[in-house]
Design a protein around this nucleic acid. Structure first.
Lengths: 201, 201, 201, 201
DNA sequence: AACTAACCGAGACGGTACGTCTCGTCTTCGC
DNA sequence: GCGAAGACGAGACGTACCGTCTCGGTTAGTT
């Protein structure tokens, strides 16, 4: 029994344990610099300085800038996407979009997200993680709103869900990146209005 | 005679005239590298090498990388966007999108355009030029299709045109950048299908 | 006496005693690396790795690289400076110098000793140890040779001993460090020849 | 003929010429830091910062710290070894040694020279330069003093000059490095006294 | 037998400096 | 003016060690 237990036990931790404080500091610093200067403007040196950490401590745990950004992104993505529940699909979508617009235009996270999107164009690993951990989460929120709407019979059941989600988030990204028109409440309202037409057929 | 000619010229054009060959070579090289390595991966050094030109010749005529990219972009954007005319709005939109998808996914221009979009995030001047010379042209094409459709009474007249255009091009950019689904003919067809619902109310 | 001293001190000797095995391993490792890579190429890190010892175990017992090297050299050579006794001062000095030349030029100790010299320039504590443990021992050997010579009436009694010793060891160091001429037997012979002139007046 | 001519013609200087201003700034900065922090405390990084120069500009022209220090010292001191001429060999040697003692003990050059010695042990090229530019110059001074003394018949002609010079400079280095006794005027006087015995037989 | 103190190995920590690289700029040459 | 060449200031790269700190574990007394 003892032997069994022992075989289960992990190897005893040797040496000084990794500093959780440093890890946090590095990931936060990475996110901050990403927001300020974008992916290409992010240097390990700057992260080390900002996080008050030795460069080696970064290189010890992440072997590339992309790796670091992926982890920072994960930390960022871990933020709870709260799915509004106003009782109607229209209300839920409006709320969801307004929150998203606010985060993207009025918080540092917005810039960081743009930086991340830029980063995805340079590294497919980042692209994958960005899609799985960030984009999918937000698409999932819409899917849940739709399901609730179907159950309540507010919208029709035979939706091409993925396409509709592209029609919701696509214009958002388009405006955010091209900047030809603002991401404001009017846009949220009119966009949702059009989407509702499609949801009710 | 030579003297006479010179006296005619207002600006006394001294020294060797600017090499048009070099100018073309530089702009083409810039576009090529933009396509290969993106905006941040573009260095004047690399352009000079590729264009077989001295670095100083670039700096003499363009103040910055952004300046250079803007000019290269103008050259690129000068490409005629031909507006399809199949007789129906549905057909026109399908054609327009399929062409756009092809260019973006199967030609070097696609990468260059993504590179440019990335560049816009770092420089508002580039952003402006990109919008005016590139985006607007393509939005204009859709507007023309809509106008013809209204004249033919294929679609209703009281459209929120700009919003509908966002609903067309937004999903395209979204898929191009995020890569969660392909930019293929099926997508073009289903996207246009949904848009047509909105155009007919 | 030793016993008395010990009983007086009555060191409480609590906790785990110092590991003699580690001590040996460290000193041997130091000597080995010294031989391979010289004084400048010696790092505490490398010693710890080679000796399979934690770095702290080194820092706990030695304050600096120079400290460590001094101990390693002492251990390695057992460093008994055997004072030759050939019957004549001339013979004794020749023997002494030839031995010294051999050690300095044909063993790793030569390089190590030079490295130590540099270290002494920055740390007076090390300088003191180096003088007491290395230099004085060798100067004492010459003093003993002189005393025997005086007793045998081979040399005069009123010597400025310290100055003469400088005249013996000085040229040795000079050639060792500057390398403008070899530390060979010819040098030993001619040097002793000149010194004998001064010893006999 | 053409070939011959070509071989005579200097290569046309291509590219930007070396900046004399930077060269001066680097050497002055090196000298300043040498004085402040000594040889071991001198880092290329610090020199670059102080001289307001890119690190590469230092590495382009000097292979190592020792190289740089050699040039800085040469420049700084212009290093005229003035050979005293008091009329007697005794007086000349006394003067020469007292000057040397002063420079070595009371100026930053002393520390620098010691630092250079280490470097010579790791790099024979530096060793060579050190010998030729520093040591030989000073040995030459003694040779000249001896020649004048021989002409004036103050000393015998059949000297083993190199050995005697070792007997003069050796003790100086020995005391400088080991520090067992001071480099003072008393030492200069008694050392010269002994040397004179050998010079007169 | 339990407790305590000092050791041990391992290895992470914040740092400094290394020598290399590439950037955009500057400065010269010869055509 | 142009191409080419190459030095320049700047600053990030990834590595090597520094000397310190912090773990789990050992090895002796002392209680």
């Amino acid at each position: 029994m003892t032997l069994l237990t022992k075989s289960h036990v992990k190897l005893p931790q040797r040496g000084r344990p990794r500093s959780e404080e440093s890890r946090q500091s590095i990931l936060l610093g990475t996110a901050a610099i990403l927001a300020e200067r974008g992916y290409e403007g992010l240097s390990i040196e700057a992260v080390a300085t900002k996080a008050e950490v030795g460069k080696q401590t970064i290189y010890r745990w992440w072997h590339s800038k992309a790796d670091l950004v992926i982890d920072a992104l994960s930390e960022l993505a871990a933020q709870q996407v709260d799915i509004p529940d106003t009782g109607s699909v229209t209300g839920d979508l409006r709320e969801l979009l307004k929150n998203a617009f606010f985060v993207l235009t009025a918080t540092p996270s917005g810039n960081a997200v743009i930086g991340l999107l830029v980063a995805t164009q340079r590294d497919t690993r980042i692209s994958k993680v960005f899609r799985e951990r960030f984009v999918e989460k937000r698409r999932g929120a819409v899917r849940e709103i739709f399901q609730r709407g179907i159950q309540r019979e507010q919208i029709r059941a035979n939706l091409d869900t993925d396409l509709i989600i592209d029609l919701i988030y696509g214009p958002m990204w388009y405006r955010l990146l091209v900047g030809h028109a603002p991401l404001d409440e009017v846009f949220a309202d009119t966009l949702v209005e059009q989407i509702m037409v499609l949801l009710k057929e």
